[in-house]
């Protein structure tokens, strides 16, 4: 069953065309990884999906409901789509616990006690129960990002969008975040923009290679890494592999 359908998305900023007709679908609990050179529109695509930057043209459907329809209740639909940011964007004035519980309290209108309890479960799941009372400024980058993931998870989303979740982290902190993401595999659909080739190779159901605002090629990690059809894909994967290494992760 198709859960997410992205249909012919176009987006420009001023005269600059960023996305030029992007289409793909995702099934329930699937993991897809988007790769591609800088400035290609990967972040823009994620922001089009949850309407942080509404597309100029094209449609996005979630569970048969059209997100891009101006008549649909976008706030309600966003509850179902988590977003994990490259620079975390934790709420600076709230503790880790309340960062995770605030969506439950204010959006889902769950009582404080129950919201805290659920938030604590999610923090435990990402290994941060002990940091519940700490403020973002008191957490390491890797811890912040795991709180970011817990915050998304607490809302019981159908889909979580990850925009380069590890690229602002020191190398030694990346592993913890990737481990958490791997543990979510098959439990919730994940659309992940990343340069972590180890993660893409070992965890993704499909890899999407984007360049110039279009999808150049997509396929299983095996096809993409060993048997990519397009020369451009092979070239990019070769370069990125040399840069980031495709050994680590598993």
């Amino acid at each position: 069953m198709t859960m997410l359908e992205v249909k012919d998305i176009y987006k420009s900023y001023g005269d600059v065309h960023i996305l030029n007709g992007v289409s793909f679908t995702m099934k329930k609990d699937e993991t897809k990884v988007i790769i591609g050179p800088s400035g290609t529109g990967k972040s823009t695509l994620l922001r089009c999906i949850n309407q942080l930057s509404p597309p100029d043209k094209g449609q996005v459907w979630l569970n048969g409901e059209e997100i891009t329809n101006p008549k649909s209740n976008i706030n309600k639909l966003r509850e179902k789509i988590g977003f994990v940011f490259q620079d975390f964007n934790l709420f600076n004035h709230l503790t880790a616990l309340r960062n995770v519980s605030i969506g439950l309290e204010k959006v889902k209108k769950i009582e404080k006690e129950a919201a805290y309890k659920r938030a604590m479960e999610e923090l435990t799941r990402v290994g941060l129960a002990a940091q519940a009372a700490q403020y973002p400024a008191q957490l390491s980058g890797g811890q912040k990002q795991r709180v970011g993931i817990a915050r998304a998870l607490a809302m019981d989303p159908d889909l979580i969008l990850f925009d380069e979740p590890t690229s602002a982290l020191d190398p030694e902190l990346i592993g913890d975040v990737l481990d958490v993401m791997k543990s979510l595999c098959g439990k919730v659909a994940m659309l992940v923009v990343t340069h972590e080739m180890g993660f893409a190779r070992n965890v993704a159901d499909e890899i999407i290679f984007m360049e110039g605002g279009v999808i150049v090629e997509q396929g299983s990690p095996k096809e993409m890494f060993t048997n990519a059809k397009m020369a451009r894909t092979r070239e990019f994967l070769g370069r990125i592999g040399a840069l980031y290494g495709d050994e680590e992760g598993g």
């Binding site: 706030n75 966003r78 988590g82 964007n89 600076n92 969506g103 959006v107």
Partner: peptide, 13 residues
């Protein structure tokens, strides 16, 4: 930072 608003809206606020 503008990211704070983005994060809040992404939660469904």
């Amino acid at each position: 930072e503008s990211g704070q608003m983005n994060a809040a809206r992404s939660l469904g606020m």
